[in-house]
């Protein structure tokens, strides 16, 4: 029982949210906040794998999100929506619910492949030089898409709402809520399994002493490649969901500011703590929403709060611990590994 309690609690929670959304208990605004929370959890926990567990400093996470968003949007719009350039839908709209997750995963896979751009230089460089490469990749991806006229260039790309409507036409349930929660669950599930395996513990070994890791038979290059690809692939999935939730993407919504948001969530939660990333993603989303009426002053207050938080708790909310380390009594109710 203890072994599955966390999973069951999570599943029940998700079901309640979906049922609530279906029954109209939450209005659209609350729903959208929950959706963004899910997407932010994916973003922060996937970036945490690289920045927290592996100890690199990747500041271009939004680039992979961007790739995932565009690729999955193009696939779904190509298949299920009328578009000026891509033409009439290729498949009947009834199939939308089946092909939608495939499109999201395709987006994730392509984003993972773009992740190689960062992973290969990481074999030779570390730290700040790698940070630059990630920033440069972020700029390159945005600039590359702005120059692709077929997907709208700087004006952006739309039509994803049609896809969501197509899904609702088949069965009228809150599809995006379901997919986002599934995506969040999938991310946490994969990350949890990865970092608790002997394979994934190699990531921590690289963080703490790369030379010792290599000498103790850890294939550091392979681990770096897998880790970067996993992290960027998950960011791609987050991007795909983001694009379909908003229904519209443009390259500038994935600029360095978005990457900064991801960074903030990781360091707010604590480096290397999965539960910390989840917690900070939730808090950060709520904070953004709570301060929304302040408009531009919001972007003064939030950094100020973070700066103050760093002064009082320089290791983030959770440090490098998990929830079950901070409250050992929780272990009675669930296992986290």
């Amino acid at each position: 029982m203890r072994k599955y309690s966390l999973n069951i609690a999570f599943a029940v929670g998700c079901l309640l949210i979906v049922a609530g959304a279906q029954a109209g208990l939450f209005n659209l605004y609350v729903q959208s906040v929950i959706l963004f929370m899910g997407i932010n959890i994916i973003l922060s926990s996937s970036l945490n794998l690289v920045n927290g567990n592996m100890g690199e400093f990747s500041c271009g996470h939004a680039a992979f999100m961007c790739v995932g968003a565009y690729v999955s949007s193009i696939v779904t719009v190509l298949l299920f929506a009328q578009n000026k350039i891509l033409g009439a839908p290729l498949l009947p709209p009834d199939l939308a619910p089946f092909f939608f997750p495939i499109a999201i995963i395709v987006g994730g896979v392509v984003a993972a492949l773009v992740g190689i751009l960062v992973a290969v230089p990481s074999f030779k460089t570390r730290g700040d030089y790698l940070a630059i490469i990630t920033i440069a990749v972020n700029y390159m991806v945005i600039s590359g898409i702005e120059n692709l006229d077929i997907v709208g260039g700087p004006r952006g790309f739309m039509g994803m709402k049609q896809v969501v409507y197509a899904m609702s036409d088949v069965v009228d349930i809150p599809w995006m809520m379901i997919w986002t929660l599934l995506g969040t669950a999938f991310t946490l599930w994969i990350l949890r399994r990865y970092i608790s395996s002997t394979y994934g513990k190699g990531v921590n070994a690289i963080c703490q002493d790369e030379i010792a890791a290599e000498i103790m038979s850890v294939n550091t290059n392979k681990i770096k490649l897998v880790t970067f690809m996993l992290s960027s692939g998950l960011a791609g999935i987050a991007g795909g969901l983001f694009a379909h939730v908003i229904g519209y993407v443009n390259p500038q919504s994935f600029n360095i500011l978005k990457s900064t948001e991801c960074l903030v969530m990781v360091y707010l939660g604590g480096m290397g703590s999965l539960s910390g990333s989840v917690l900070s993603a939730v808090l950060f989303t709520l904070m953004l929403e709570a301060l929304r009426p302040l408009q531009i002053i919001k972007w003064v207050i939030i950094p100020l709060i973070l700066v103050l938080l760093m002064q009082f708790r320089p290791e983030g909310i959770m440090g490098n611990k998990e929830l079950s380390d901070v409250f050992p009594k929780l272990r009675r109710y669930f296992t986290f590994k």
Binding site: T198, Y199, K201, G202, A205, A213, M216, S217, V218, N219
Partner: peptide, 8 residues
Amino acid sequence: RIAQHYRK
């Protein structure tokens, strides 16, 4: 455990 990487 990590030192067993090569025989995983």
